[in-house]
Design a protein around this nucleic acid. Structure first.
Lengths: 185, 185
DNA sequence: AACAACATGTAATAAGTTACATGATTGG
DNA sequence: CCAATCATGTAACTTATTACATGTTGTT
């Protein structure tokens, strides 16, 4: 079983958007997904070598006009296939779905919409659970000195999940519109 | 340098709220903070033993009326001190601050408020960065097939951060009110 | 009798971070 | 010339997960 190995898919995903060096991958992660996922050079360079060995990427030395030369990696068809397999698998990590949306151009919009709908259902259940916990907290006359602190965190959970649901619904609409716009103008 | 080791502080934090067994700790994490932090038995049991060795917790076998007997851990004064040290340090991990709010009853409300104010400032900067990235994305006539996907994720980032700011402001108010209410009725 | 829940634990493995080393090039 | 940025890499370490083993008690 291929385990999680998010770094692998993040790198594959970024390469699917165009050839990049290890250094460039780090920059892109910082720029685009660092707010919910991070990656270090200690993961990037070994993973790139590994991807090459597996035939999922090819390497080419490139002497740039500016700066030192770099090893630029290209994704192969097998690499793209591997990426799609991951994109289609079900998610196990909390925010894995966001990565999949981010690299989602490799699969159809219908598939992404289905994922988002699943995400909405999951979040609705999560909210129910949290709200029950919240009620229990408010209901107890425990005088627990920690009660306020726990309540604050539960509240953030509910607020965050609601935001995620709202975003998901908007995103579904945007994906649907995006498709229609092809026929317009 | 004591490194991150979140498991350690989560366990210490939960013990500060009352004596618990390893099994109970796992249950509590699932119930209360699983939506932004997780922990496995493979971390819990060795960490508990370690905390005991360090004198930060004490263990007592307890034969319950129901079910098998369990090892119940109590936090010591040193353990509480260690927890406070962590609570007062500055955060390095993205959502470490939420853990600290959750276990925050060991430090003063003023200190928590200061942390939340810092969090708001940070998030305002984060939003600026994301919005700039968003504008750049919209501005390019690249026809990148991935553009929509990247935009969706950026949008979620901005929405989430705004939610976090709103929550922080509300939380600051609640913490201030909580203090006043002592004098009321 | 079977199953779910309670309860503890570990060995193997995987994943990720940190600190370090190295060196080229560019802009001031 | 110096600092910043570009660029690659690795060894040691820490952290975390997974799969397994083991046994009790309560419920159906």
């Amino acid at each position: 079983m291929p385990k999680d190995n998010m770094a692998r898919y993040i790198i594959l995903g970024l390469l699917s958007q165009g050839p990049k060096s290890g250094y460039a991958i780090k920059k892109w992660v910082e720029l685009s997904i660092s707010y919910f996922w991070d990656i270090s050079y200690g993961q990037i360079y070994p993973t790139l070598r590994h991807l090459e060995q597996e035939g999922l990427a090819t390497m080419k030395m490139e002497t740039a006009d500016k700066g030192p030369s770099s090893k630029v990696y290209n994704i192969t068809d097998d690499g793209r296939e591997e990426l799609r397999k991951w994109l289609r698998r079900s998610e196990e990590k909390q925010y894995e779905i966001l990565l999949k949306i981010f690299f989602g151009s490799e699969i159809s919009k219908e598939e992404l919409i289905k994922k988002l709908e699943g995400f909405i259902s999951k979040r609705k259940i999560d909210i129910d659970v949290l709200e029950k916990a919240e009620k229990e907290l408010r209901g107890t006359p425990k005088k627990d000195p920690n009660e306020i602190n726990m309540l604050l965190i539960t509240t953030l959970g509910v607020m965050s999940y609601r935001t995620e649901i709202e975003w998901s619904m908007r995103s579904i609409e945007m994906l649907k519109d995006g498709k229609k716009q092809k026929n317009k103008k």
